[in-house]
């Protein structure tokens, strides 16, 4: 049975890219264009892992992540942060947010080999 990955990114091209890349490598994918849409898809799709952008409208990646980690039902789902923001680790390092660190960080643009390796490690 294919592992399922939810892709949350407001860039349409990035969503298309990740969908094609992961599908070609045996994953089932669902796409969401922002944090709000992502949470709805999460409930329906029940992914094994999430690839999450940070800078998005209608609930940023940090907002989505906070909600995810507060949910007893979904907090266990591993997350890879994939973003163009260089200081993305700062978002999760801030003590007032009290957020557990995501399992993986990657910066855009990314190497397909590295991303596939990290996703494989996430869903195992």
């Amino acid at each position: 049975m294919s592992k399922k990955v939810l892709i949350v990114d407001d860039e349409e091209d990035t969503r298309s890219y990740l969908e094609a890349l992961l599908s070609d490598n045996g994953y089932e994918t669902a796409l969401a264009e922002d944090g709000e849409d992502g949470y709805k898809k999460l409930i329906d799709f029940k992914p094994d892992a999430i690839i999450l952008d940070i800078i998005m409208p209608n609930q940023t990646g940090v907002g989505f992540y906070r909600k995810l980690k507060k949910s007893e039902e979904y907090q266990h789902i591993p997350v890879m942060i994939l973003t163009g923001v260089s200081s993305y680790k700062d978002f999760f390092g801030r003590s007032h947010l009290s957020l557990p660190k995501p399992q993986q960080f990657m910066e855009k643009p990314f190497s397909t080999e590295e991303l596939l390796e990290k996703i494989k490690a996430l869903v195992m």
Binding site: E11, T14, L21, G84, K108
Partner: peptide, 18 residues
């Protein structure tokens, strides 16, 4: 601008991959 260019480069990578 660097953030936006990174998204553009990712888009280009994605297009080429597809």
């Amino acid at each position: 601008m660097a953030h936006k260019i990174k998204n553009v480069l990712t888009g280009l990578d994605g297009g080429i991959y597809l």
